[in-house]
Simulated scan of single mutants.
Amino acid sequence: MIDARGLTLSLGPSGTATPILRGIDLSVGPGESVALLGPSGSGKSSLMAVLAGLERPSGGSVLVAGLDVARLSEDALAVARRGRIGIVLQAFHLLPTMTALENVAVPLELAGEPDAFARAERELAVVGLGHRLTHYPAQLSGGEQQRVAIARALVSEPALLFADEPTGNLDAATGTQIMNLIFERQRSAGATLFLITHDARLAARCGRVVELADGRIVADRRQA
């Protein structure tokens, strides 16, 4: 599902660019759940952004869900991701002029699904927002916006889900409920989960833990 070889990323002007990722080799198979750990500045979010096709690598190769994310154009990548890859980022990236229902229905509409709004409504009900369907992002709390973003990522039943601190804006009880939902969906669909977290309890629920430091993988262990 993920195959990265010699992956590098540097940001900034040529000649003075700052290295962020320094030769990442990583393979993740279908159905695996992987927790990505590391201190702030270690490159966790940058690695996820490259793997999800949100950031172009500076070097190396990367195949994700059969996509050569380093070579596809932005438009081709957006089309190819539909239905295959779900992404939950710390910044919610909800469309401000659309309601919660419309935000969740968007990926289904783009994929030409005929029951987009019915499925979006069911997904919002599952994350506890069945009563907020017609509210715009500005009318929702940070935690509610996070749940809309999670519903949008899950509604297409993707084969690969990237999640960057998905419970960071949620209270403990809601966060547990949402993570139970994510792990349940991951298992039932045989999907791959790639999770950035600082929560040791969440990492312990994953089958594998990868640790980054200074842009390099320093540990990669499987868990019982």
Results as ranks from 00 to 15, higher is better:
residue 3 D to W: 00
residue 4 A to C: 01
residue 5 R to Y: 02
residue 12 G to T: 13
residue 16 T to H: 15
residue 16 T to W: 11
residue 19 P to E: 03
residue 22 R to P: 02
residue 22 R to M: 04
residue 23 G to V: 02
residue 25 D to H: 08
residue 26 L to S: 10
residue 26 L to C: 09
residue 28 V to P: 04
residue 28 V to F: 04
residue 29 G to V: 11
residue 29 G to A: 15
residue 29 G to S: 14
residue 36 L to S: 00
residue 40 S to E: 08
residue 40 S to I: 02
residue 41 G to Q: 00
residue 43 G to N: 04
residue 46 S to W: 05
residue 47 L to Y: 01
residue 47 L to V: 03
residue 48 M to P: 06
residue 48 M to H: 06
residue 49 A to N: 15
residue 49 A to E: 13
residue 49 A to G: 13
residue 50 V to C: 13
residue 57 P to D: 09
residue 57 P to S: 11
residue 57 P to A: 09
residue 58 S to M: 02
residue 60 G to S: 08
residue 61 S to Y: 00
residue 62 V to C: 04
residue 64 V to Y: 10
residue 64 V to D: 10
residue 68 D to V: 05
residue 69 V to H: 12
residue 73 S to D: 14
residue 73 S to C: 08
residue 74 E to P: 13
residue 77 L to F: 14
residue 77 L to W: 11
residue 79 V to G: 08
residue 81 R to T: 05
residue 81 R to P: 02
residue 83 G to A: 09
residue 86 G to H: 10
residue 86 G to A: 10
residue 87 I to E: 12
residue 91 A to D: 15
residue 93 H to C: 05
residue 94 L to A: 10
residue 95 L to W: 08
residue 96 P to R: 00
residue 103 N to Y: 00
residue 105 A to F: 14
residue 105 A to T: 14
residue 108 L to F: 09
residue 109 E to H: 11
residue 109 E to L: 15
residue 110 L to K: 00
residue 111 A to R: 10
residue 111 A to P: 08
residue 118 A to P: 07
residue 119 R to D: 08
residue 119 R to A: 15
residue 121 E to S: 06
residue 122 R to P: 10
residue 122 R to C: 11
residue 126 V to Y: 06
residue 128 G to L: 10
residue 129 L to V: 03
residue 129 L to I: 07
residue 130 G to S: 08
residue 131 H to T: 15
residue 131 H to M: 13
residue 131 H to F: 14
residue 133 L to M: 05
residue 133 L to A: 05
residue 135 H to Y: 12
residue 136 Y to E: 01
residue 137 P to M: 00
residue 139 Q to N: 09
residue 143 G to E: 01
residue 144 E to D: 13
residue 145 Q to W: 14
residue 146 Q to R: 14
residue 146 Q to M: 11
residue 147 R to S: 04
residue 149 A to L: 04
residue 151 A to G: 07
residue 152 R to M: 05
residue 152 R to V: 03
residue 156 S to H: 00
residue 156 S to P: 06
residue 160 L to V: 09
residue 163 A to Q: 12
residue 164 D to N: 06
residue 165 E to D: 14
residue 165 E to Q: 12
residue 167 T to Y: 11
residue 168 G to T: 12
residue 173 A to Q: 15
residue 175 G to A: 12
residue 175 G to L: 13
residue 175 G to F: 13
residue 179 M to G: 13
residue 182 I to G: 02
residue 182 I to H: 02
residue 184 E to R: 13
residue 184 E to K: 07
residue 187 R to E: 15
residue 188 S to T: 15
residue 192 T to V: 06
residue 192 T to F: 07
residue 193 L to K: 03
residue 194 F to H: 05
residue 195 L to C: 05
residue 196 I to L: 01
residue 196 I to Y: 03
residue 198 H to P: 11
residue 200 A to M: 07
residue 200 A to I: 01
residue 203 A to Q: 12
residue 203 A to Y: 11
residue 205 R to I: 04
residue 205 R to K: 01
residue 207 G to H: 02
residue 208 R to L: 12
residue 220 D to N: 14
residue 223 Q to K: 12
residue 223 Q to L: 15
residue 224 A to T: 11
